[in-house]
């Protein structure tokens, strides 16, 4: 079956390119709060598909800079919106992918770092904005951004690691905060944070076995992965689950052939793009996580992606590894 399905690379590239020109519809402005994230997803998908030049580098960089929120000293999803930790990571990822972090300049970089550090709470967790939703996503986001900037410190890392470890559950999964139900996306944010902090050794061998079990237990007989037990499979979990397994060195506990088949079935053969499950409407979010998952499985010479940062390995290999020498 999977023999007859192939990755429609060219179609996906055209699909991502087309998103940019669909500015005149209603949904587009409603998603302003995700715009910078969307550009990061699109760019990363293009990198995996070996076609980064589909976006005009200078335009993207100038858009990123236009999202700078000078009041708070970080990046907003869109010009004149308020800075947020999630979009700040996207901005840093985009600039790093283009090897253009220098455009930040010293002043902005200093403010950016203090914004990120300033969102850390006493228990080691981070809030996404000044309002204060707290969850492990933001711990990952903060550590990842600081790591890309080469600015991690033990004052930030140690309490963050303590918080992440508290989110580990009896079933081998990780929750959004201590006590919350295990969820595949949280496995990624927690393991990613630990990997960035170089603290995976805080997990015992037994815990790593359990974590690996919980993650590969997400694969359903049809091949797709779900985010929690008894939920439907969804392409974005190809990323959250696979990257987590890759981080703990147990990627082969997933059946590649079946998962590949599931992802390929979620392609829109006409207009390109990948959806959450077969026959659904495609979007850029599931497109990037679909191709990134395929890249982790070594599919068809896709450009290798780093499971910790969700960025091309050629980019992340240049990051300074914590703890710094």
């Amino acid at each position: 079956m999977s023999g007859s399905l192939t990755l429609l690379k060219e179609k996906h590239i055209r699909y991502i390119e087309s998103l940019d020109t669909k500015k005149h519809n209603f949904e587009y402005w409603l998603t302003e709060h995700l715009r910078l994230n969307g550009i990061y997803w699109g760019l990363t998908a293009l990198c995996v598909l070996d076609s980064p030049e589909t976006f005009v580098k200078e335009e993207v960089i100038s858009f990123v800079l236009s999202c700078w929120d000078d009041k708070y000293g970080a990046f907003a999803p869109f010009p004149r919106h308020d800075a947020h930790l999630l979009t700040t990571l996207s901005a840093v990822q985009i600039l790093a992918t283009y090897d253009a972090l220098d455009v930040l300049g010293k002043d902005r970089k200093v403010r950016l770092i203090s914004f990120i550090r300033g969102n850390q709470l006493e228990d080691g967790s981070f809030q996404g904005d000044r309002f204060g939703e707290v969850d492990t996503r933001f711990v990952y986001t903060a550590l990842s951004a600081l790591s890309i900037l080469g600015e991690l410190t033990s004052e930030v890392v140690d309490p963050a690691v303590d918080f992440v470890l508290k989110c580990y559950n009896f079933d081998g999964g990780f929750g959004l905060c201590p006590n919350a139900e295990s969820h595949a996306a949280q496995a990624f944010t927690c393991l990613g944070a630990l990997a960035i902090a170089n603290k995976l050794d805080m997990l015992s061998d037994d815990q790593l076995e359990e974590i690996g079990w919980w993650l590969c237990e997400r694969q359903l007989p049809e091949g797709g992965l779900n985010g929690r037990p008894s939920k439907l499979p969804d392409v974005c979990y190809s990323w959250w689950v696979l990257s987590s397994l890759a981080i703990i060195g147990r990627l082969d506990w997933i059946n590649y052939e079946k998962l590949t088949e599931f992802i390929l079935k979620c392609q829109d053969e006409k207009k390109g793009g990948i959806s959450d499950r077969p026959e659904n409407e495609v979007d850029v979010f599931h497109t990037v996580f679909g191709v990134a998952g395929l890249s982790l499985m070594g599919y068809d010479n896709l450009v290798p992606i780093d499971p910790i940062y969700c960025m091309p390995k050629s980019v992340t290999s240049k990051f300074k590894k914590y703890p710094y020498k």
Binding site: W29, E59, S62, F63, S66
Partner: peptide, 19 residues
Amino acid sequence: PIETDLQDELCRIMYTEDY
């Protein structure tokens, strides 16, 4: 004003009047 004054093609957006 909520439209950005940037000339950049990426930023030109049409809003509904009410919004």
